[in-house]
Design a protein around this nucleic acid. Structure first.
Lengths: 194, 194, 194, 194
DNA sequence: AATGAATGAGTATTCATTCAT
DNA sequence: AATGAATGAATACTCATTCAT
């Protein structure tokens, strides 16, 4: 019934260490130690480091899914659901173990210096877009909103949209792109408009 | 005048290989071969694999910045600028060498299987949100738009917003979060509203 | 109880190989093979090649010290002690693992040819000094002893004396040098005198 | 007639660098730089690093030989010659480029820490022998001399003697050893005796 | 079921040497 | 005669994985 206590300890320890150090820098020995088991024991439950990592990722993803569906399911109407969704995004990001940072954050593989540089770079790019928003506000094209927040929302929308559509098949790409861009701009300009 | 041809060859080859295989799987020997130079030559120009990687990242980032600023600078009015911005996002993603995939794409470190699973997972999450959009359309709360595209735009906006705000200092966090969520919803509901 | 058998095997194998080939020419792989362990195992016991080397040197030095103190401690009177000391010097040199040859013998880094040349050179220098001894014997200044052996004893005394004193502080140097030279000559001329 | 100026510059630079850093740590590039020539130029004069090293060693040895023979040749009588010899030993050691330190001093390959440890170790061994000398003085067996200096002279004599004899053929060894030890002790006890 | 000592394949890096100019 | 950019063989070291206990 207890779904092997040892297995769970290993999974939990690996989640912490992979999150903190990334796939390559997290050592099996450390994970074993953090889980309070011997190195060999991990291999009684998982075939390899990769399998451990993948199992952990899928576990987290499924947990998230459950929480998402449950929490959003509790909301009755359309608007509340979307609002709940955005709020959950904040909670998940705050929790520091959302999947992206686990799959992708081999951040820690690199120097603080590079990370700092990249953060700084992103800050400048966002500032650049915020400036455009300012222009829109001054020019009377849009309402007087916080330009940086508007920039983030717009950029995030454009980013996920393009990222997703770029993965589509060649023949669907063009039409999806046009439709997507049109919708993005409609939403943005009507949404921000006076 | 030519800013060291060899250095550029190495940088270009490393860009290709790091993009294709990620930091850890790209071997110095391969990079040297791809650049058409000897292994040791790389070390005449870069102190270490890390330095090579960082230099390449920063180079790309700066190239992007130049393109962004130039292309968007060519546009005259506010709306055109934002539209150009979204289009550039598509071009960059298409080009497969945008920074995120370079810093984070230790994707290739993992099995196709996991990547597929994650893609599938994301697809389901987006489908889940698209379903909410459908509800909104059927319920007459929003216009009859492509629900998946709307889901992507909303989710992307929520994601970058929360991601950015979660990195802020504790005392700024709460007010930014509230202001951000409010703006996100105002844009979304007005933008999508009939 | 057994002070890690593996560690001892590694230490012993490294002693053999460092003695035979010097620090640089002795390869970790060879040492591992000679010790009958895997390459990685050495690193479970020693942080680096340097640490292995240093540990080995200190071990040998301490063994020597023990033997010296024990053997000489067994002798009762002053003369026997000094005589024992000189005998031990022979045994140690015969054993081929005395520290000097381990720390300094990067001999093996070089061609037999250079070594031969240097040996030959030294032979000539000793012959040169032996000739001076011959002169002393013929001139009736000293007893009729083996001139080469006398040369070796004198030269060795002069060498260690100067070597040691040259390492002293500037202000002690002059007086030590004078006292040392005077003593050396008093011993030599009285010791060799008729 | 000028025996190639470039060749001499290289030889001089290599002497400095090999003396300072030892064979392995002295880099050809540094030597070239110190000599004020290009890396490739060294190879116009010397076939390899080893050949450069060997040439340099032999040059120094021959210089020494010349100085030795000349200076000692200037002295007229037996005693003065030996005294001059010991003095030259000091000068040579002081000059820091005597052959031993060049062939053997891969000292610099190792940590200051090990060198310090070995120096300390030697100091203790010499102290140990000096204590025996003290015993001899107190017991009235020898004159009241500086015990440490006496220890150095005795130990040096024993060292070179044993070192040299240990290199001899097996059948000569025993008789040389006995004769050598007897002479060493006769010199020492008569030389130090009251 | 659990362990951890032992393993060795795999890789970044160094530096003596070459050779086109 | 002189150069120094380019080379690649050689090697210390890491860490996921195994297996005897």
């Amino acid at each position: 019934m207890q779904e092997s206590n040892t297995r769970q300890k290993i999974l939990l320890a690996s989640r912490m260490l992979f999150a903190e150090k990334g796939f390559h820098k997290a050592k099996m020995e450390e994970i074993a130690e953090a889980a309070g088991v011997g190195k060999g024991t991990i291999y009684d439950y998982f075939k390899s480091k990769k399998e451990l990592f993948e199992t952990m990722i899928k576990d987290i993803a499924n947990e998230f899914k459950s929480v998402f569906i449950e929490k959003i399911g509790e909301e009755r109407d359309f608007e509340s659901k979307l609002k709940k969704l955005a709020e959950l995004k904040f909670e998940i990001n705050k929790s520091h173990i959302y999947i992206e940072s686990l799959v992708f954050k081999n951040l820690s593989s690199f120097d603080e210096e590079l990370l700092e540089w990249l953060k700084d770079f992103r800050e400048k790019m966002i500032g650049f877009i915020a400036d455009i928003m300012c222009e829109g506000i001054k020019g009377g094209h849009i309402k007087d909103v916080n330009p940086k927040l508007a920039a983030l929302i717009y950029l995030g929308g454009a980013h996920l949209l393009s990222h997703y559509i770029c993965e589509q098949e060649k023949d669907e790409y063009e039409s999806m792109k046009n439709e997507g861009l049109e919708l993005l701009h409609e939403i943005t300009f009507r949404g921000l408009g006076k």
